[in-house]
Nucleic acid binder design. Structure first.
Lengths: 195, 195, 195, 195
DNA sequence: TATGAATGAGTCTTCATTCAT
DNA sequence: AATGAATGAAGACTCATTCAT
C-alpha cells in the first residue's frame, strides 16, 4: 500500500510540477493542484500540507535527479569539449518551454529571501558549478587549450551570465541566437588568448 | 483641484513603491496599499483600479526620472572613467536595500511574460544599455584604453552579468565583495589586452 | 456613520445573543451568526473577528446593564425583604427560557479554564455577591430578623446553591417547585434560629 | 476472538476517557480518539459510530463501577462518620485533575437538554443521593447526633452545594480551602442545633 | 472627491464517514 | 477485523469591488 501511496505522491509531484511551470510559485494554490490532479481537496492534504511543501519536494527530486553533466562526459574529452557540452546543456534548459521551473524557482527564492531564510542549497549549487568550471578552465589552461589568467573569475563570469540569460528568458524572452551569441563570446574569450 | 489630485496621486505612488519594494509584486493587494496610504478603499479606486496599474505608473515614473549615467559624465572623461562610473552605479543599486524594486519588477515581468504580453519596454532599456556600452567600449578601444575584439559582445556580457548579479542579490543574497569581484573581472578583461 | 455602525453592532450583538442562548458557546460559528443576522460573511468580520469576541462583548454589555438588585430596593426595606427580592430575582433568571446565556457562559468558562486563562471577572462577580449577602445577613442578624452565627458561610452557601440550581436547570431541568423548595430552605435556615 | 474485541473496546474507552477529560465533550472528534488510541480511522468505527456513543459507554461504565460510599462504610459507623466520609469523597473528586469528566459531562448534558432529551439517568443519580442523605440525616437526628428539622431539605441543600462547587471547580477554579469551608459549614449546620 | 460599509467569491483547512484491500 | 486512502461538506478568513452617503 505504501507502494501505491508512493506512486500517488509521485503523480501529484509530477502534476504539480506542470502547474508550477505554468503559473510560477506564488500564484499556485492547493486548489490548482487538486484540480490538476483531479483528486479531492482532502485527498491532497493526505500527502502534502502546503504548496511550499510540494514545491520543496519537487526541487529536491530535481536535485536528486540532477544529472551532473561533467560526470557524464567521456574520460578522454578535452576541457574545451566538456565546456562546450556544459554550455549546450545550459542552452537546452534555457530554451525549455514545458516543465520549466525557472520562474517558480525565482519566486520561491524571492519569498525565502524576503523571509530572511537562507537559500544556501541553491547558493551551494551555484558555488559548486563555479568550482567545477574553475577546475575545468585551469585544466584547459594547463593543456594550452584555453588561455586564462583568472580561471575562478572566468568561471564566476560564466555562471552569472547564465543567470542573466535565465532571467532574460523568463522575462523579456530570449532567442536561440541570443544564447548562442553569449555562449560563443564566453568560449572565444577563453580561446582568444591562444594566439 | 487637479493640482491637489496630482499630489495625492503622487503620494499614493510613493507610498505604494515602498509596499512593492517590501512585498514584491504578486503579493501586494489593493488593501495593502490602502492601509499603507491610510486612505479609504474607495478613495484609492478613484485614482487607480488595480495594483498592476499602480505598479505600471511607478515604473513609468522611474523610467522618466531614470538618470542616464552617461549623460551626467563630464565631456573630457575617458571611456574607462565612464565605464567605472557606470559600474559603480550598478553596484550601488545592487546593494540598495530600501526602495529596491528588483523583486517586484521581476515578478511583474514574469506575469507579463506568462501572459504572452511583450516586455518590450524593459527589453528596450536593456538593449539601449548594451548599445551605449558598445559605443563606449569602441571608443575606449580606439583610444587604446581598452583592448577588445568584440565590443558588442563585451557589452552584452556586462549586461548579462549585471542581471545575474541582480537576481543573485534578490535570492541568495550577495556581498559587496562578490560584486566587486565581478566588476573587476569585467574591467580587467577590457584592460588586459593592452599589454 | 459611527452612529449607524454602533446600531448595527448592537443589532449583531442582540441577534448573536439569541444564537448563543440557543446553541451554547462552543457550537456557535461565525456562519451561524451571519445567517441569524442575515448579513454577509465579510460584513460580520467588519465588526467582530471571532465568536469569542462577540461573546465577550455580549457578556460585557450584560454586566454593564447588570441591575444591582440591592441598589434598587427601597431604603426602608428590611433585610428579610431584600433577601426575598434577591432570591426572587434569581428564581426569575433560573426559569428564563429565552435569552438565557447560562449554558453558553458555562461553556465559555470551561474553555477559558481549560486554556489556563483566569475567569477572574466572573469569580469577582460571585465574590461580590457573597460580600453583599454577608452584609445583608449581618444586618438582619443585628436587627434580630435573622439568626445566623456565620453570615459569611451562609452567604457562600446561598451562592453555591444558586450555582447548583443553575447547572441543574441547564442539564436535568428544574421545576419552579424545586427552586421554591431550595429558596425556602435557605430562608427558613436564617429565620429558624429566632425561636 | 470476542474476548480480544472486548479488550480492544475497553482500551478505546479508557483512552477516550482521557481525551474527554482533557477536552470536554463537544470538542472531541473521532479523529482525536483515533489518534489517542493509535488505531485506524476505520478501526474505531467498527466499535463505535460516534463520539456520543463512546461517551455514553464511558459514563455507563462509570455508573456501573460507581462505588457507593454508603455501602462501603462499616455497619457500626455513626451518621456523622458516614456523612464525613461522603463529603470527603466529594472533596476528593472535586480536586481530581486527571480523568475528571465533570466538564465533559456538563457539556454532554447541555446537548441532551438542548435537544429536549431527558437526562433522567443523571437526575436519578442526583435524586438517589438526596434520598440516601435524607435517610442518613434522619438517622442522625434520631440518634441526637444531628439536629435538623428538615432532613430532606438539608439533603437537597448539600447536593446543590456540591453541584455549585463542581461547576466552580470547572470554571473559576477552586481551592482546597474553599471546599473545606463549604463542607464544614454544612456539617456545622447539622451539628449546631445540638447545643 | 472621499469614505468605509457591504457583498460575495475564492482559498484554506479539518473532519466524519465510506470503502477497497 | 483492520487499515488508511479518499471524498466532500463545512466553516474560517481575506479581498476586490461596488455603492450609498
Amino acid at each position: 500500500m505504501s507502494d501505491k501511496a508512493a506512486r500517488k505522491k509521485q503523480f501529484i509531484l509530477d502534476t504539480a510540477k506542470k502547474v508550477f511551470s505554468e503559473k510560477g510559485y506564488k500564484d499556485v494554490t492547493m486548489k490548482d493542484i487538486v484540480e490538476a490532479c483531479e483528486i479531492s481537496r482532502g485527498g491532497l492534504y493526505i500527502y502534502f500540507e502546503s504548496t511550499e511543501q510540494i514545491f520543496k519536494a519537487i526541487i529536491d527530486a530535481e536535485s536528486a535527479a540532477g544529472d551532473d553533466v561533467f560526470s557524464r562526459t567521456r574520460k578522454d574529452a578535452t576541457a574545451g569539449d566538456i565546456l562546450a557540452i556544459f554550455l549546450k546543456e545550459q542552452k537546452k534548459e534555457l530554451l525549455l518551454k514545458k516543465d520549466n521551473l525557472s520562474v517558480a524557482m525565482y519566486e520561491y527564492l524571492f519569498v525565502k529571501h524576503a523571509n530572511g531564510e537562507s537559500c544556501k542549497d541553491e547558493k551551494a549549487k551555484f558555488d559548486a558549478a563555479v568550482e567545477v568550471l574553475t577546475h575545468l578552465i585551469e585544466n584547459g589552461t594547463e593543456n594550452d587549450e584555453f588561455y586564462c589568467e583568472d580561471p575562478n573569475g572566468a568561471a564566476r563570469n560564466i555562471m552569472y551570465v547564465i543567470e542573466g540569460l535565465k532571467i532574460a528568458a523568463s522575462t523579456y524572452g530570449i532567442t536561440e541566437e541570443d544564447i548562442d551569441n553569449e555562449l560563443l563570446f564566453i568560449m572565444s574569450g577563453l580561446l582568444s588568448g591562444e594566439e
